[in-house]
Amino acid sequence: MDLSTADPDAVLDVLDRRLVCALQVDGRAEPGRIAEALGVSARTVTRRLARMRQAGVLRVVRMPDVEDAAVGALLLRVRVLSGRVDAVAQALADRPDVPFVDVMLGGHEVGAVVLTGAGARDRLLYGQLPATAAVTETTTHAVLHAFADAGQWRAGHLTGEEVAALTRPAVPRPAVPRPAAPGPAVPPPLDDLDRALLERLGEDARQSHAVLAAAVGAPESTVRRRLHRLDGLGLLRTHATVDPRLLGMAVDANLWLEVPPGRLSEVGSALAGHPQVHGVFATSGPTNLLATVFCADHGELYRFLTDTLGPLGAARVETTITARAVKRAGVSLRQPPRRP
């Protein structure tokens, strides 16, 4: 299913933006709970959310756990011949193991996030990309630590009290045993029903228990118990996918930072807490920290660089600006037709 972005010259009104922010806090929140937290009627919430979803403005999907999925992920910067960027971007977006794809300003670079095993990774990096005549260069960064990802970003149109009212109580997460030899934690055991539920929520995280039960052929009570367990395992994180321009944020920038190793944790944590930042990752490669930032305009991006980033003491910063998002959180984005 494609998500058609709305007219970039349009914006959501104040209540629409607040509803999007409510789903950023809890993508599975019931209309009644959203209504109570925001001080509007449940009918209004239901009608507004249905209108945005039907218009292709908003979609809520499940995101992988940031600790389990992000570390070891690949951040690709693919340089492409002029005129071939759309084909390369779409080829990457068609892969199920690539949840994020952007075309960068200038039309010669595609950015992508790859979540895959070693075999598929090697085929992509050492076979498929080099064999593509349109690709001139590929830079690969491995994620070493995730300070924040897109599922944790909040657009900032809610008060602290409203966010608290919408935040679900934390489900105690069981300790996951690690193998005797050094390596990643052993993933929790999932059966066919768990995987079926997660797959359905990856397409639409707002499906009700009854709809999910009918889809997977299990009793509703069983589905409720399974979702509670999966939530405790950190597997029900959600992402409210919306064109940031509709929230008043016209500029999406990637900041590739070179930070002294001794300050990497300090700088990453400071940026992760900033409301304009929607992702911060320590990486391998030519730079060691990536921060992704939403800004209202280029002037606000300049102020972020000088006033927020400047005092943190990065030795070098490369700023790249997203011209077009192709895929976000596994959701393909189809751009609106150009005006004549």
Rank of each mutant, 00 (worst) to 15 (best):
S4T: 06
T5M: 15
V11I: 04
V20P: 10
V25W: 11
A29C: 14
E36C: 08
A55F: 06
R59V: 05
V60K: 02
R62W: 04
M63P: 00
A70P: 04
V71A: 11
L74F: 14
L76R: 12
L76A: 01
V80K: 03
Q90R: 15
Q90C: 14
P99G: 13
F100S: 09
V101K: 07
R123C: 00
T132P: 06
A134E: 07
A146D: 13
G151I: 03
R154Q: 13
A155M: 01
T159G: 07
R173N: 06
P174Y: 11
V176D: 00
P177F: 09
P179Y: 07
A180E: 10
P184W: 01
P187M: 05
P187R: 00
P188Y: 07
R195C: 11
E199L: 15
E220M: 02
V223M: 12
R224I: 05
R224D: 02
D231K: 05
L235A: 06
D243R: 03
L247H: 11
R263E: 06
V267P: 12
A272G: 00
A272L: 00
G273I: 02
G273C: 06
V277D: 01
S284A: 12
G285N: 08
T292V: 10
L312M: 11
A314N: 10
A325W: 05
V326R: 10
K327P: 06
L333F: 04
R334I: 07
Q335K: 12
